[in-house]
């Protein structure tokens, strides 16, 4: 954040914003097979125009894999698939997301949604859950995912040639998650990812479905959605963002997300214009640099691992030695 931008923001609207952790500007892309041909180029162009994050919404292709496809094609932009936390295998989902974090060198996040389309449970042979059960399930899956992400210490791979030890079991822990409808043992089959815990965010449109507990207690923050499908008036957009940033209750706005961008009507021009206005008015964070993780961009603290003695993966050995 530069002083100039803040001053400009103050001049144009008279409301000086004091936040040091301004939200990151994101653009939503739909994982529609018809955009496959140009999605790589589009991601690169959006990165070049200073957009901080891409969110990938489900349009048929799996958003996690589309996000990972974009990872090696980009360098700074964060990648957040918007994907269900309810009718999924928590272990697979957690593994996929942490793998995206590895591939993208710490640029991954999760826009957590709770599926309400009954076609989805039918496709995995499950009964559709009511709103309360849906919210509870989403919370359980998120908690389980975090335990899995946290199951390897950063330094678990020791490569100690003298002792012949590659990975130190004392630096691994089980997830040992017991939810209402499932349990997960762990540990992860993937070493700790660069960010450790991926930022988990909830968009305004998903807030009702995921429930208040996930949206306000468990998630790292809120995503403010700006529908630009019918074009965007930069002044009005800036006002909406300023309004949201000055709210003192509810989860903090981490992403400002442009949704419904018309890819056939100069999408880059639209984004450039909005980016310029929002930056001038000091309403969004600066474009990310190459070394920044998504946590860095969002000013989230480094995710230190929670070591839990009861979950230690070498407890089997400790017990057998104690008995011996």
């Amino acid at each position: 954040m530069t002083t100039t931008a803040l001053d400009l923001g103050a001049q144009s609207a008279g409301v000086p914003l004091q936040r040091s952790d301004l939200p990151v500007l994101a653009v939503d892309l739909i994982s529609d097979p018809s955009v496959l041909e140009r999605i790589g180029q589009l991601a690169q162009d959006l990165e070049r125009s200073g957009v901080g994050a891409l969110t990938l919404s489900d349009g048929g292709l799996h958003p996690i894999h589309v996000a990972s496809y974009l990872a090696p094609l980009t360098r700074t932009i964060a990648l957040l698939p918007r994907t269900d936390a309810v009718y999924v295998e928590p272990f697979h989902l957690a593994t996929q997301l942490m793998s995206l974090d590895h591939l993208s060198h710490g640029r991954a996040g999760w826009l957590l949604t709770a599926e309400t389309d009954p076609a989805v449970p039918a496709s995995v042979g499950r009964a559709a859950l009511g709103p309360e059960d849906t919210a509870r399930e989403a919370a359980d899956v998120l908690e389980a995912a975090r335990l899995i992400w946290d199951s390897w210490a950063q330094d678990a791979v020791v490569r100690d040639a003298a002792r012949g030890v590659y990975v130190d079991a004392a630096r691994l822990q089980y997830a040992d998650f017991e939810g209402e409808t499932f349990s997960v043992r762990g540990p992860a089959i993937t070493p700790r990812s660069p960010q450790g815990l991926l930022p988990v965010l909830v968009t305004d449109v998903d807030r009702a479905a995921v429930g208040e507990r996930v949206a306000t207690e468990l998630a790292d923050g809120r995503v403010l959605d700006l529908d630009v499908s019918t074009g965007a008036r930069p002044g009005a957009v800036a006002d909406t963002v300023r309004q949201a940033l000055t709210e003192t209750t509810g989860p903090v706005v981490c992403l400002v997300r442009l949704v419904g961008l018309d890819l056939d009507a100069d999408p880059l021009g639209t984004v450039a214009e909005l980016t310029a206005t929002l930056r001038e008015q000091g309403l969004i964070a600066a474009a990310p640099s190459a070394e920044q993780s998504l946590r860095d961009q969002l000013s989230l603290p480094t995710a230190a691992r929670t070591a839990d003695p009861a979950r230690r993966s070498d407890r089997g050995r400790l017990t057998s030695e104690d008995h011996a």
Binding site: H92, V167, A169, G316, R317, S320
Partner: peptide, 17 residues
Amino acid sequence: RGVPFELDVAGRPDAQT
């Protein structure tokens, strides 16, 4: 023997991702 095996390479990313 009830403890993650320490002596071989272990830990890999999700295949399709």
